[in-house]
């Protein structure tokens, strides 16, 4: 099991996290077709190489992290707090 560098907790065993898959985009529910929606639900890229993923540090800080990971080597290029990245002020409040 690899180590994931949590920005809050440091390098931690991957078993402490829950993998939420590649970061996807939710289709607009007002206009989506079944094909688009099912693609969002079930059909994901499975690249050999770099992928941007979502990991939840469930046994640690309980923050969702945006992780750039190489699926071939398990090298992690970056791991950032997802909410803090997108909305620094709201995330400050939430913590």
């Amino acid at each position: 099991m690899m180590l994931l560098p949590c920005p809050w907790c440091g390098p931690r065993h991957a078993g402490e996290f829950r993998f939420h898959g590649a970061a996807g985009t939710r289709p607009d529910p007002a206009t989506t077709t079944p094909e688009q929606w099912r693609r969002y639900l079930y059909v994901h890229d499975n690249p050999r190489g770099w992928q941007t993923e979502s990991w939840y540090h469930s046994a640690g800080c309980r923050r969702f992290l945006t992780v750039e990971r190489n699926t071939l080597t398990h090298e992690v290029r970056s791991a950032r707090d997802t909410q803090l990245d997108a909305a620094p002020n709201a995330a400050e409040d939430a913590r």
Partner: peptide, 9 residues
């Protein structure tokens, strides 16, 4: 909250 609506308080 954290990933889809980071701005919600």
């Amino acid at each position: 909250l954290q990933t889809a609506h980071p701005d919600w308080r």
